[in-house]
Design a protein around this nucleic acid. Structure first.
Length: 84
DNA sequence: ATCATGACTAATG
DNA sequence: CCATTAGCCATGA
């Protein structure tokens, strides 16, 4: 586990239930405004799927983005949380 | 040290 | 609005 990945996760767990943030937002949150690509890289490995709500992280343009468990699942979770 | 790889982004045509 | 391009950064080989 690298420090960078930890920072990314720490930022991700701060995302409120039912809301979404962008990769760029996370990057800025960890004081690395231009590491949004590296952020995605860290999430891609995603070892804390159950503690880090990485399904709430989407692209800045509003697109769904990717997910280790599949975009469909990601979309479902977001929609579900938005409903509750 | 160098190179390729991505769940990306912003700018340009 | 859609496609292409260049810029970006941590990570692993």
């Amino acid at each position: 586990m690298t420090e960078f990945e930890k920072e990314v996760l720490k930022a991700v767990v701060k995302i409120p239930f039912g809301e979404t943030r962008t990769y760029k937002w996370v990057a800025e949150k960890i004081k690395r405004p231009r590491a949004y690509r590296a952020v995605a890289n860290a999430l891609r490995k995603n070892p804390y799927l159950l503690v880090a709500p990485c399904h709430r992280v989407i692209k800045s343009c509003g697109d769904i983005g990717g997910y280790s468990q599949g975009q469909a699942q990601k979309k479902r979770l977001i929609k579900l949380e938005k409903t509750i």
